[in-house]
Design a protein around this nucleic acid. Structure first.
Lengths: 126, 126
DNA sequence: CTTTTTGTTATAGCTATTATATAACAAATG
DNA sequence: CATTTGTTATATAATAGCTATAACAAAAAG
């Protein structure tokens, strides 16, 4: 799985890494048990500091996506719990679209379409 | 429309104000043309600084939700454009739920339910 | 056991963000 | 004209994001 960093983005680098790994898990490219590159390895690849990658891994561990161990590196977790504020964030995002005049049906179709792009040609665990 | 501020929240105060006004517009409680309290008035009500409210209004104006005029105060805009990164933010949010094991159908139902709570008993403009 | 790699922890410095506090200016209302 | 309002300008303080070193401890490899 490839990760792209945009240093000029307004989104913090550690957040970019976090989001792309989450999406990788969602797409099924990163299955439970999959090992991720070491902190120093990733930092070297991107030409960024060790602590920036560490912060991303730390966050992913707190959120239940990864388990970080010594020497083994980060390993994708079988499952976790949805963040408590997830629905609140969804609410704010959907409200934004409604407030700009998008019909609820149109918004729902967009959700459906995005979900489809995330779940297509992916092997669900059996 | 009532606005609640949580000073201890990790979400910035100006962002809390922004989000709640957006939701007010989405729910139809704030119709186009509706006047909002003045910057100084809101700041006094919340016991916060003038500039914090100003930042929220400034953001809402940039996003096309409000038009801010002298003396008249802020007025809800008829319509705007959806932010370019809206779909990207939706994607990240939905990926988070998928990665935690929620089935796509369940996620879509949650979207539908949230949309329903935002659009219920609201007078669409005619 | 020794060496290497790795996660962890601890500082430190720098920039940007968030929030506050005053102050002053300009435009619109009454 | 006087008041209210948005706007602009500084200044200060706390926090967040990122970088830079350095050192320590645990696990794997030789």
């Amino acid at each position: 799985m490839l990760i792209f960093i945009e240093p000029e983005s307004e989104k913090p680098i550690y957040q970019q890494i976090r989001d792309q790994i989450v999406e990788g898990i969602a797409r099924g490219e990163l299955l439970p048990g999959t090992g991720l590159p070491s902190i120093r390895q990733l930092a070297a690849d991107f030409g960024i500091n060790l602590h920036t990658v560490n912060k991303a891994y730390e966050l992913l561990e707190r959120e239940g996506f990864l388990q970080v161990r010594r020497k083994t590196g980060a390993v994708v977790q079988p499952r976790g719990r949805l963040a408590e504020d997830w629905e609140a964030r969804l609410r704010t995002l959907l409200a934004e679209a409604l407030a700009q005049g998008l019909p609820a049906e149109e918004i729902l179709m967009r959700c459906q379409r995005v979900l489809a792009t995330l779940t297509e040609r992916e092997q669900p665990d059996r």
